Amino acid sequence: MATLRCFARVSQLYRYGIAGGITASSLQPMPLARVVPVRLMSALSPEFEDAKARLGTLKEDPGNDVKLKIYALFKQSTTGAVNTKRPGMMDFVGRAKWDAWNSLGSMSQGDAQKAYIDLINSLLKEEAAAEPETKADSDQKYENFIVTCEDGLRTITLNRPKKMNAVTREMYDEWIAALDEAAADPKTVITAITGAGKYYCSGNDLSNFTNIDMSKMHQLSKDSGVILERFVSAFIDFPKPLIAVVNGPAVGVSVTIMGLFDAVYSTDAATFNTPFSALGQSPEGCSSYIFPKLMGFAKASEVLMFNKKLTAHEACELGLVTQVFPDASFQQEIWPKIKAYTKLPPKSLIYSKALIRDVERETLKKVNRAECDRLVERWTSEDCMNAIMNFFNRKK
C-alpha cells in the first residue's frame, strides 16, 4: 500500500498516452489496440501489418514495460531512429515514450519490424499457453479472493496468479470484508491467508490507476491514507488466530502486515521485500514499530530503510517468520499442521489473543495513524516522484 498513491503520479507513463502525442495534462485511458500510432509508412511488410492488427486481440494487458517496448519498436519501424528532442521533465508521458524509443539506438527499420512481429507473436503465444486462473465457486461473493471454510479452518486465498496476486484498490475493501466475515462467523476457528500460484503477493498493482485527475492528487492521497488505515486496523483488531501461509515471494504491504499475524509459515522458496526508500516512501502496516521489536533496530533498518530482501530462513531468524518448510513438501505439511489448531477450544484461543494483543492495541493504532499520515505526505512529494522516476529509469 505504501506505493498505492505515489505511483499514481507516474503510472500514466505506462498506462496512458503511450500511443500518440498526448501530454500529461490531457491523458485519457485507451484500449490496448491503440498502444501504437495509426500512421504507417508504405514500406511496412504484410507480417508487420498483421502483427499490428493482432495486437488488439490480446485479452490481458502485457504490462507497463512491454507496452513501452511495443511503442518504441513501432516508432523505430515506421520512422527510424529518434529525430526529436527529449520532452521536458514534467511531460511524463512524452519523456517515457522518448526514452523507450531512444533506447533502440540505430536499429534498422527492418530489424525493428522483425522485433515488433516477434514480440507480438510471443505475447499471443504466452497468453494462449497460460494456465487459466483458479475460478471461485459460483456462490463466491469475492471477485479477487477464494474463501472457503471447512471444519473450523477458513482460508482466504488471493486469486490473481497471472498478476502475481498484486493488490488492486478494490481488493483492499474485499480483504477487509473477508476478515470481517471470518471474525463474525462462529464456525471459523482459525483463519489462514495464502496466495494462488507461485506468488504470495507482489504488493500493489500499478494498473490500479487508469483515470487519474492530477488536480485531485492531494485528495486522492488522503483517501488512500484512509483506506490504508482501515486495512491495517482490520488486522490489528482481528479477534481470532490469523496465520499467513506464504507460498512464494512477498512484497510491500503483504510483508509489513505480517507482524500482525499470529503465525507466519513459509516455503523456503519465498522472499520478503519492502522497497520503501528506493521509492521515496516510508513504512506501513505498523512495521516501523513491530519490526524493530522483532529484529532489533539495526536489522529492521536494513529491511525498512535499506531495502534488504530477506530469504525465508533469514526472515525466520529475525522473527518475522515462524517456521520454514521445504518447497517440495510445503503444501503437504502446512495444512495438516494448521487444521490441528482448529481442534483447540475456540474461546480459549480468542481470549488468549485478546490478552496478548490488548496490551499493544492502542499503541498499534497510534503507529498505524502516524504511518498513514507520513505516507500521505510522501505520495504527494517531489521526492517520491523523482525516486520512482529513477526507479523506472534503472529498469530500462
Results as ranks from 00 to 15, higher is better:
2 A>S: 13
4 L>M: 08
7 F>A: 10
8 A>P: 04
10 V>T: 10
12 Q>D: 12
16 Y>R: 08
20 G>F: 14
21 G>A: 13
25 S>P: 01
27 L>T: 09
28 Q>D: 12
30 M>R: 11
32 L>S: 05
37 P>Y: 04
39 R>A: 15
39 R>W: 12
44 L>D: 04
47 E>G: 07
56 G>S: 11
57 T>W: 05
65 D>W: 04
67 K>F: 04
68 L>H: 12
68 L>W: 07
74 F>K: 00
74 F>A: 00
77 S>R: 00
78 T>Q: 14
78 T>S: 11
82 V>E: 02
92 F>H: 03
93 V>Y: 01
97 K>Y: 11
98 W>D: 04
99 D>H: 08
104 L>T: 08
104 L>S: 09
104 L>I: 09
107 M>Q: 06
110 G>S: 07
111 D>W: 08
123 L>G: 06
125 K>A: 15
130 A>I: 04
136 A>T: 03
141 K>V: 06
143 E>A: 14
152 G>L: 09
155 T>D: 01
160 R>D: 02
163 K>T: 11
165 N>W: 02
176 I>T: 01
178 A>Y: 00
184 A>Q: 14
187 K>D: 12
192 A>I: 02
193 I>Q: 03
197 G>D: 00
199 Y>G: 01
203 G>M: 06
208 N>T: 09
210 T>Y: 10
214 M>H: 12
215 S>P: 01
216 K>H: 12
219 Q>V: 07
220 L>A: 12
224 S>T: 15
226 V>P: 00
236 I>V: 13
237 D>V: 02
241 P>M: 06
242 L>A: 01
244 A>Q: 07
249 P>A: 14
251 V>A: 00
251 V>P: 00
253 V>L: 11
257 I>N: 01
258 M>E: 05
261 F>W: 01
264 V>N: 11
269 A>E: 09
269 A>S: 10
271 T>N: 07
276 F>M: 10
281 Q>G: 14
283 P>G: 07
286 C>Y: 05
286 C>P: 02
294 L>F: 07
295 M>G: 05
300 A>S: 15
301 S>R: 13
302 E>F: 08
304 L>T: 00
315 A>W: 09
327 D>P: 00
338 I>Y: 03
352 S>H: 10
362 E>M: 13
365 K>E: 10
366 K>T: 11
367 V>N: 00
373 D>H: 11
373 D>C: 08
376 V>I: 15
378 R>I: 07
379 W>C: 09
379 W>Y: 05
380 T>E: 14
381 S>Y: 06
382 E>G: 09
387 A>M: 13
388 I>K: 09
396 K>T: 09
